[in-house]
Amino acid sequence: MARFAMVIDTKKCVGCMDCVVACKTENNVPEGYNRDWITQEAFGNFPNIQLEIRSERCNHCENSPCVSSCPTGASHYHDIGGVVLVNHDECIGCKACVASCPYDARFIHPDGYADKCTFCIHRVEKGDKPACVSVCPTNCMYFGDLEDPNSDVSKLLKSRKWHTLHPEAGTNPHVFYLT
């Protein structure tokens, strides 16, 4: 069974926000909202300062608090690849999922339902890559199946150092950052 994941090479990401624009265009994300965004984290002491630039989004966690807190089952794991999705016609807009996400990856769409990154499942099901991955000018983003040992994501996670966001939250996120 497939398990989709995204791997982002922070050594190659320049924070150009092409991924953000592509997502907004592809998914018709309303003004004032973003399904993905750029975060810059600077740490260390001068002159030894490091900068990590990350393209962030929903982490499509394996142990998603948004799915378990949803009272109607609107938030669910998709049959293909374990992608976390929201069924708009089942969402009552109670915001439990928004409050339960340690990454604050969700928001309430102006139409009332909870919204977030879908890994562009509509494209993936047709064999395409998510919009953000397909437009990245530095090729820092990779998308694929973790269960396939020959996929780009599996190979990169085997050969490079990586981290996830807030692993202490116990959500088992599926967006990985190469360092």
Binding site: Y33, I38, T39, Q40, K95, A99, F107
Partner: peptide, 21 residues
């Protein structure tokens, strides 16, 4: 130093959660 900047500014999410009034 430890500094975090983000381009995200989602309504009722950033800078702090205010979804429940």
């Amino acid at each position: 130093m430890h500094e975090l900047t983000t381009t995200r500014n989602n309504y009722q999410i950033d800078p702090v959660l205010t979804v429940w009034g």
